[in-house]
Every structure is written in C-alpha cells, then in structure tokens.
C-alpha cells in the first residue's frame, strides 16, 4: 500500500518535478527527479522482495507435512501465466511508445492490453490459490504454506496496484488527457510494471522451477 501511495502520488508531480520550482527544470544530473526517486524506491522494493524470497528459501524443506511444492505446483499452467505477464510488459513498452508519439489509439489499445493481461495473471493466481487450498495447503498448514502465500500474495498485491494504476492511465488515455508531455507518468508506471514483472520471473525460477 505504501507503494501505491508513493508510486502514484509520485507520478503526477512529475510535470513540475521536485526541484524545478522555477520552471527552469534544473537538476544537477540532468535527470528527471521523479525517475531518480522512483528508481530509489524500486531499490527499496528489491530489498523487500529479497527478504521475502530469502525467508522462502530458508524455509525450503522445513515443512513437517505435505503437500510439498512438488506435489502441487502445476508448472505448465504457471508457465502460461508467466508468459502472459511477460507479454504485458511488451504491451507496456508499446503503450508508452504510443503515448510518446501522441498516438491516442495505440496508447489506449496497448494500455488496455496491459490491464487485461495483468488481470489474467491475477485470475491465474486466484485459481492457483483456490486449487492449493483444496489440496490442503492453507496459509496456516505448514511453513511452506505460510511462506508461499505471503511471498506470492505480496507479489499479487503489487500486480493489483499496477492494474489499478494502468486502468487509471487507460481512462486518462481514452479521455485524451495522456498527451506526449505526460509520457513521463507512463514511463514511471512502466518502470513499476516491468519491476513487478521481473520480480515474478525471479519467483518463478526460485520457487517453481528449482526443486
């Protein structure tokens, strides 16, 4: 939630930037302050997910009873949802390109694809959680259950925030407010989206693929 506050609240001020009170847009590095700030924030998020992942890894094999990861992971299915999320990143790139070029239709279309793909990913996650709970793996069942749901759940929460953010941009785009001078907002949203995507790839490899 903090992420939502910062990420989004951040995005809008970008037109003025923190430091460019004069409208001179002076910064010591020539970079945009919102981008620098957002990168810093992403650094912070890396530690956040890094700690969650470490906890998962530390507790690997510590569950007292099944179901164990190998019993319930459906790798082909998760591969598919991973692919969908990856494709949404591609759509994000195209959407940003649309905004930068002032192509309203292109921007809206691809932002829409991002929203849809993100939602599909969340749907997969919902299905997966449901299925696992049926298999007897609840949040309380074992350390595997606790670590798995908290790790992927927090990732899912980040995707959810991202989908809401993208929906907001989509609405703005449809209303014609996402002019090229607002491209920075979309770029920062894109940074967030790609980050969440990369985190998923790490989770997918470490949690699902490595036995």
């Amino acid at each position: 939630m903090a992420e939502a506050v910062m990420g989004h609240g951040a995005g809008h001020d970008a037109s003025h930037g923190g430091g460019d009170h004069d409208g001179h847009h002076y910064t010591a590095t020539g970079l945009n302050s919102w981008k620098v700030g957002f990168w810093t924030f992403i650094g912070s998020e890396c530690l956040f997910f890094g700690t969650l992942l470490s906890t998962y890894m530390v507790y690997k094999g510590a569950s007292l009873e099944g179901p164990y990861p190998l019993d319930i992971f459906d790798i082909p299915l998760t591969t598919l949802s991973t692919f969908v999320l990856l494709m949404s990143s591609l759509a994000m790139v195209l959407g940003l390109d649309g905004v930068q070029k002032g192509s309203r239709g292109k921007a809206a279309f691809w932002l829409g694809v991002v929203v849809v793909f993100g939602s599909i990913f969340l749907g997969f996650q919902y299905y997966e959680f449901n299925h696992f709970i049926h298999e007897g793996l609840t949040l309380q069942h074992s350390v595997f259950g606790s670590t798995f749901y908290v790790l992927t759940g927090f990732h899912g929460a980040h995707v959810t925030v991202g989908v809401i953010w993208m929906t907001t941009l989509l609405v703005q785009s449809l209303r014609g407010k996402l002019t090229p001078d607002k491209a920075l907002q979309v770029e920062i949203a894109g940074l967030y989206w790609h980050f969440v995507d990369i985190v998923w790839i790490v989770i997918f490899v470490l949690v699902y693929l490595i036995p």
């Binding site: 810093t40 924030f41 650094g43 530690l47 956040f48 700690t51 949040l139 309380q140 350390v143 927090f154």
Partner: peptide, 25 residues
C-alpha cells in the same frame, strides 16, 4: 534507510501474519 527498512518491514509483516492469521513463520 531505503535498504534496511524494507527488511524490518518484512519481518513485521511475517510477525503480523503469525499474530493475526496464525501462520508459522
């Protein structure tokens, strides 16, 4: 600050889950 605080944030989240949702961390 930006690197150390997320670590305690995770620790506190895990503890909160233990307290409020009876997890096993």
């Amino acid at each position: 600050l930006v690197t150390a605080l997320p670590v305690i944030a995770v620790a506190l989240i895990l503890l909160a889950f233990d307290r409020f949702f009876a997890t096993n961390f």
